[in-house]
Simulated scan of single mutants.
Amino acid sequence: MKIDLPNITAFVTVARAGGFREGARISGGSASRLSDQVRRLEAELGVRLFNRSTRSVALTEAGEGLLNRLSPALDEMELALDVVNSFRSRPAGTLKLNVPVSAARLVLPHFIPPFLAAYPDIRVEVITEENFVDVLAEGCDAGIRYDESLELDMIAIPIGPRTQRFAAAASPGYLEKHGMPEHPRDLLEHACLRGRFASGTMISWEFERGDETIELNPGGPLLVRPGGGTDLATHAACMGTGIVYLFEDWLQPYFDSGALVPVLADWWPRFPGPKLYYPGRRLVPTPLRTFIDFIKSRPWPNDQAKEKPRSE
């Protein structure tokens, strides 16, 4: 059976995007053209691949089976074309990254603008996701996560600061009213602004000084999901609602402006910085290889042990 490759590509695009409109946005085409191509493919195969309604598009069982068999072949085809691309004088293509919001805010601004300026033929797409995902299944080239989230078959290289710290902070007004905690356990008597992952797991507050390590789950009036809710927790802390616990780099601008004051700075725990990770079982696409070489050549500014700010 001879099947037109553009029709197959249209099917995979719609299936991965979850709909014709999103598929058209990603591919730069039109939804009506994708719909026509998928209908032609269904007619050629003699089977329905999508269940369509006015509100949703979902793969049929036959569609899921076809997608599972086609995806590896199309991925290999893209890599084969990318080998040709590597012979170009200027690297080109799309680099798709899956990163947490913290990396999009604190790490990527150092790399992405100069990278795009240096390689104008490369397009970068950034997807923010707090949970660890299979980058291949999500159609991404690479991701950014921390060591505890990485699988064994992944290649990981440092990106951003080699060491980071979690920090606790509160507004001057809150501390004037409720007092400055002297020990991490004092936080159990304070209003703490907490985070909870989509899985339902609460984010523990960890502190360390010397050989002593303390893990707490204090109560408080506000609970947010990391990523989208982090700015809300920070704003609430600035308004005097309670004590917030986040990346030190995230809170540093508020320390600099005086909107927030460091709390228990002698207890802030250090941890290894983020890693750029990608599957080790496949060839590295040219845009990703170019990005890897770029971040290796661009050291993180002031990547050294930071002086602990003094509590006020």
Rank of each mutant, 00 (worst) to 15 (best):
A58Y: 06
L136G: 14
F132L: 02
G143P: 02
E76M: 12
K177I: 08
Y254H: 13
I127K: 02
G200D: 12
V133H: 06
D82N: 12
L49T: 01
I243Y: 01
G173D: 15
I8Q: 11
L260F: 04
N131Y: 05
R55V: 14
G242A: 07
E215R: 10
D266C: 02
E206M: 11
I157L: 13
G273W: 04
R123C: 09
G63E: 00
R209T: 05
P309E: 08
G242R: 00
G200Y: 09
L260K: 01
R270G: 15
A31N: 09
T128Y: 01
P184W: 00
H235Q: 15
V107A: 10
R162W: 08
G143H: 05
I26K: 09
P253S: 05
G160D: 12
Y254C: 07
A265N: 09
L59N: 03
D141I: 03
L223V: 14
T13L: 12
A198N: 06
G19Y: 07
G242Q: 04
I144S: 02
I8N: 05
G139K: 00
E212Q: 11
A191T: 11
G143W: 03
Q37P: 07
G242H: 04
L97M: 08
L152C: 00
E176R: 07
I26M: 09
S56Y: 13
V135C: 08
T286V: 15
F115K: 02
Y146P: 01
G29Y: 08
A17D: 06
D75P: 03
Q37E: 14
L152I: 11
L276Y: 06
S32K: 10
V126S: 03
H235F: 12
E312M: 01
L59E: 08
L260E: 03
I295P: 10
H190P: 08
G227W: 03
A237E: 03
L70N: 05
I203P: 00
V38W: 01
A10G: 09
G63K: 00
V12L: 07
S149P: 00
G242P: 05
I144N: 04
T60I: 09
S32I: 13
P6Y: 13
V47C: 02
L45P: 06
G229M: 06
A259V: 06
P285C: 04
K177D: 13
E151G: 12
V14I: 07
W268T: 04
L264R: 01
D266R: 11
T286K: 01
R194V: 08
V261E: 06
F247R: 03
E151W: 08
T9K: 10
Q252R: 09
W267V: 03
E148K: 00
